[in-house]
């Protein structure tokens, strides 16, 4: 079956079936991603995926690309080194909300600040799935998690606002219900020079949905359909999510700013004069 998939060339079919639960949105995001990767105009050999730890962290292992399953929270600095060693690579970081914004939050804001040329895809399911449904920095206030049994008492991050204010040049949010838009957003993000960020709201029925009476995967998708509104260009300050389940989707930021390497080469050429050869990788 899986061999007939039009994008099976980009999947490690020898690793199927995957480990994700039924109703999980990760497979959908991967499906969208491989279509975006196949359609972005870059040869697959040039696209590299770096994941952290967690359910989303396993994405790298299912993609038939050069792919790195790194440590918890650190795919962004790994990707930074990879990109700088070989800037011809298109480096995509694919990880979850806990990995990227709790343990790895500092790396996220600094990569955005530097406008490091990479695409960060965050599958936001509001929970740590791999470890059994603990609270994350995106869990809405009041939502139940295994480590917030009386409801989350903290306020969550609004990820597009965080990315926007830290300096990302491309910021979009879609849900796994919006497969066409999500595919398009990932393609645009890959094609964008600089730090691009796509948040994909995705169901974890097993550990988040069930605890919060959201039903199974299909019910949660139904919820995305009913509760989401598309507002391209929305002010990111206004797109925070809460327990009500309302989700603002769209492309929020698409702007130009010199990337890390562009800025680096410009400054060094100005300081060192004609003796300076633009840095284009170590090889």
């Amino acid at each position: 079956m899986v061999n007939n998939n039009p994008v099976s060339d980009l999947l490690r079919t020898d690793r199927m079936p995957h480990i994700w639960c039924s109703g999980c949105g990760l497979g959908t995001t991967v499906n969208c991603f491989v279509r975006a990767a196949a359609g972005c105009g870059l040869p697959p050999d040039q696209i590299t995926v770096v994941s952290g730890i967690g359910c989303t962290g396993r994405v790298a292992g299912y993609l038939k690309l050069d792919s790195f399953h790194t440590t918890h929270g650190r795919p962004i600095p790994f990707a930074t080194g990879l990109k700088l060693a070989n800037p011809r690579l298109k480096v995509v970081v694919y990880s979850g909300d806990g990995d990227l914004f709790a343990i790895g939050g500092n790396h996220f804001i600094h990569a955005a600040r530097r406008n490091m040329d990479m695409t960060v895809i965050c599958v936001n399911n509001f929970t740590y799935g791999m470890t059994g449904g603990q609270v994350t920095p995106t869990t809405p206030t009041g939502a139940i998690a295994s480590t917030a049994p009386y409801g989350n008492t903290e306020d969550p991050f609004n990820l597009p606002y965080l990315a926007d204010s830290a300096g990302a040049v491309y910021v979009a949010r879609w849900t796994t219900f919006h497969v066409r838009q999500a595919t398009k957003a990932m393609k645009e993000a890959i094609q964008k020079k600089g730090f691009s960020f796509v948040e994909l709201v995705s169901p974890c029925p097993t550990l988040y949905g069930r605890r919060n009476r959201m039903g199974d995967g299909l019910d949660m998708m139904e919820g995305y359909k009913e509760n989401s509104t598309i507002r391209n260009g929305a002010d990111t300050r206004d797109v925070g999510m809460d327990i009500s389940g309302k989700i603002v989707c769209g492309k929020f930021v698409d702007r130009e700013r010199p990337s890390f390497l562009e800025q680096y080469n410009t400054r060094l050429a100005a300081r060192l004069g004609p003796s300076y050869k633009n840095y284009e990788g170590v090889l």
Binding site: F68, T80, G81, L268, L272
Partner: peptide, 28 residues
């Protein structure tokens, strides 16, 4: 910068110690 190399001051030592590993897998 004078010999075609790249130094980056990372946000902490955790980042530094894995950025070098990304660079190695990129060929450095």
């Amino acid at each position: 910068p004078q010999v075609g190399g790249m130094f980056i001051q990372m946000e902490d030592e955790i980042a530094s110690s894995i950025a070098i590993q990304g660079a190695v897998w990129g060929g450095a």
